[in-house]
Amino acid sequence: MTAPLYQFSADRLAGGSQSLGDYAGQVLLIVNTASHCGFTPQYEGLEALYQRYRERGFVVLGFPCNQFGAQEPGDADEIASFCQMNYGVSFPMFAKVEVNGDGAHPLYQYLKKAAPGLLGSEGIKWNFTKFLVNREGEVTERYAPASTPETIARHVEELL
């Protein structure tokens, strides 16, 4: 049986749709991102994590979101250019999504139920909330925006 996570698809930042099923068997870190946020420098750590572990089956999936303080106002080309020029991002980036409310992307509706936040709250509190997914497609951990990629590395290592 296929894990529910793999039934979702999302539009890529560069265009076209991508099935999450294409990442089956890999460890995933799914992150809602923004270009104008206090946590934006985490792009550097996310890219370093991706480079360090990708040969072992690890992928970071970035989902730009403009729901928090309008900190991701750009279009797809502006987001891609910003990420590449400032942080050398090479991990997969997806089209801008909503993570909360009625318009929340189905993937994020699923992630929030699979790994609720503090006191069982499902809402995403801010940019750079992270979800760690094991090779079986199960969400194993939810990290607050302030959790840096460097602190998550040991959990990634355990799943690899």
Rank of each mutant, 00 (worst) to 15 (best):
V60A: 06
F63H: 08
Q109S: 10
G69K: 10
G88V: 03
M85L: 14
P106R: 03
F68K: 06
M93T: 14
A76S: 15
Y108G: 09
G88N: 09
F94K: 01
Y110D: 01
Y87A: 04
N86T: 12
C83V: 10
F82M: 11
V89Q: 10
L111E: 08
F63D: 10
S90Y: 06
D75Y: 04
F58N: 04
E47I: 12
G45D: 12
R56T: 04
F63Y: 14
I79L: 11
V99H: 08
V97R: 06
G69D: 12
E78T: 15
E72C: 07
I79P: 05
V60W: 07
G74K: 12
D102L: 13
S90R: 15
R56V: 01
P73T: 10
F91T: 04
P41F: 08
C83Q: 08
R52P: 00
Q109F: 01
G38N: 06
C65N: 02
P92Y: 10
A104L: 05
R54M: 07
V60I: 11
T40S: 11
F82R: 06
Y43S: 08
Q84V: 11
Q67I: 01
M85I: 11
G45F: 12
Q109R: 15
A104S: 06
G45V: 11
Q42K: 04
G88P: 05
F58Q: 03
V60S: 05
G74C: 13
G57S: 09
V97Y: 07
E55C: 00
M85W: 05
Y43K: 06
Y87S: 00
N66W: 08
C65F: 04
V59M: 07
C65E: 02
M85A: 14
P73G: 10
Y87L: 03
L61V: 02
R54V: 03
K96H: 03
G101D: 13
Y53G: 01
L46C: 13
P64R: 00
P92V: 05
Y108L: 11
Q84P: 02
A48S: 13
E78F: 08
F68L: 09
G57Q: 07
A104V: 04
A70M: 10
L111F: 11
G57K: 09
M93Q: 14
G62K: 05
L61I: 02
A76E: 15
F94S: 02
S90M: 09
N86Q: 15
L111T: 09
P106A: 01
L61S: 03
N66F: 09
A48M: 07
R56S: 14
V89K: 09
F91E: 01
A70G: 08
G88E: 04
L46V: 13
P73C: 11
D75F: 04
D77F: 05
